[in-house]
């Protein structure tokens, strides 16, 4: 077996953003399900939260290749 340990580290670090993304969209869906008219308020917040969480995942991806 051969490979680089960076990818193992990236795999571990991707767990955090994965859980975060799941929680963000779970909260968004249950919020819209309870109050459908709140959709237009919640949507940008949910997507911005998703962007912040996803930024960390992509950060890990880039650093796994660069370092």
């Amino acid at each position: 077996m051969k490979g680089t340990l960076n990818l193992v580290g990236y795999g571990l670090s991707a767990i955090g953003p994965a859980i975060a993304t799941g929680m963000i969209f779970a909260a968004y869906i249950s919020g819209v399900a309870r109050q459908p008219e709140a959709r237009s308020v919640l949507q940008p917040i949910a997507f911005l939260g998703f962007a912040l969480a996803e930024a960390l995942a992509l950060f890990g991806l880039v650093l796994a290749f660069v370092l």
């Binding site: 949507q43 940008p44 997507f47 911005l48 962007a51 912040l52 930024a55």
Partner: peptide
């Protein structure tokens, strides 16, 4: 993230 905020 600034650009995404501008868009969304």
């Amino acid at each position: 993230i600034y650009l995404i905020w501008l868009r969304i």
